[in-house]
């Protein structure tokens, strides 16, 4: 085996390791955690789906998009439209066309369609937004997010407007979340290793050199944007079916920044960074929330003052950025050593 082949093989171990990490996380919490920790695990895995989806575009292209929460919003509502009971829909969402109002799908095809519709929206929006470069593209994606939010908050007959839509089947267990997160990680790894993924990363490193080498930046960005939106759409649908209630406000600035923060804390440069960022931030938040509720240490009851969780997380984020500016993983991926992989590959011979 050549060294190149060994490296390529080794890079394929990344998704396997990440999925194993997440599986261990779910098993651990299943074995030792209470119901509320189980909820936290499911939520974390949904976030992995969202953030890995986000990474497919932002990580490979280096362009920060603020619009991905909008795809989650679209996905959540598409799944609600497809799965809610018709009686509920005629009550809450009287403006839906008949064939949608009558639909009562199974949750799995609904999640897939949620992703597909989000991807289509991304294809259309991206066709315009991605013509711009750098910060202008970021701002245009921001304007896109604000547009979607305004439309969703006011298109009352179809979206319920600012009023939450309730009654979504709450089927998202940690295992469902794990399934989608694993799928997202696989696709992200495959895309990253594909010709389009490599070309896109080339434009991230040096735009001018890449275009001089004949890379069509626009086309690859649009492809990544669309794939990326698929997983954000699915993640949004899962989020809706996790809480049982959706509202346009839940898919706006706070989600955008949560996703960004997780990505940056873990390190935007690598897929492992995205996954680790989600895990670290989610676990830290949960820990602080529990500290706020109070823990008994020896004979003393100790509790953080209410509201300190957000402050401490904010400070922690700033510290991570100062001391690990490229994120915790600093662009590296979790991989098995190439030599070891090569050795393994040889032994059967």
């Amino acid at each position: 085996m050549t060294e190149h082949q060994a490296r390529k093989l080794a890079s394929l171990t990344t998704p396997v390791l990440l999925i194993a990490l997440l599986t261990a996380f779910v098993l651990l919490i299943g074995a030792f955690g209470d119901r509320s920790l189980g909820r936290m695990a499911a939520e974390t895995l949904i976030r992995v789906t969202l953030v890995v989806g986000f990474w497919i575009f932002a990580g490979n292209s280096g362009v920060i998009s603020f619009g991905h929460a909008a795809f989650a919003c679209v996905g959540a509502y598409v799944s609600a439209w497809a799965t809610l009971k018709p009686a509920m829909k005629s009550l809450l969402l009287p403006g839906l066309p008949d064939w949608v109002a009558q639909a009562e799908w199974h949750v799995l095809p609904a999640a897939v369609v949620a992703g597909v519709v989000a991807a289509l929206v991304a294809l259309l929006a991206g066709a315009a937004i991605l013509r711009l470069s750098g910060i202008a593209a970021s701002i245009a994606s921001f304007a896109f997010l604000a547009m979607v939010n305004t439309i969703w908050s006011n298109w009352t007959p179809v979206t319920g407007g600012t009023s939450s839509v309730v009654g979504l089947a709450r089927y998202v267990t940690p295992w469902v979340g794990l399934g989608w997160a694993a799928f997202a990680i696989l696709v992200a790894a495959i895309y990253g290793a594909s010709a389009s993924g490599l070309a896109l990363r080339a434009t991230r490193e040096d735009e001018v050199a890449a275009s001089a080498s004949g890379i069509d930046r626009y086309r690859h960005r649009l492809a990544a944007f669309t794939v990326s939106a698929f997983f954000c759409g699915v993640g949004g649908a899962l989020m809706g079916h996790f809480i049982g209630v959706i509202n346009p406000d839940g898919f706006y600035l706070s989600l955008t920044f949560l996703m960004l923060a997780m990505l940056v804390v873990g390190g935007i440069g690598s897929l492992s960074g995205a996954v680790v960022g989600v895990l670290v931030v989610s676990i830290a938040v949960e820990g602080l929330v529990r500290l706020e509720k109070g823990v008994t240490l020896g004979a003393t009851q100790f509790a953080l003052p209410a509201g300190s969780q957000e402050i401490l997380i904010g400070l922690a984020m700033i510290l991570v950025l100062i001391f690990r500016p490229a994120g915790l993983l600093a662009g590296r991926d979790l991989i098995l050593p190439a030599a070891w992989v090569a050795g393994r590959a040889k032994t059967p011979k």
């Binding site: 809480i243 839940g250 929330v289």
Partner: peptide, 16 residues
Amino acid sequence: ADTRTDRAEAAKAGLE
């Protein structure tokens, strides 16, 4: 239990 003015936390508070 505290919902922290957050929908996901509200569901968790309910379970608790």
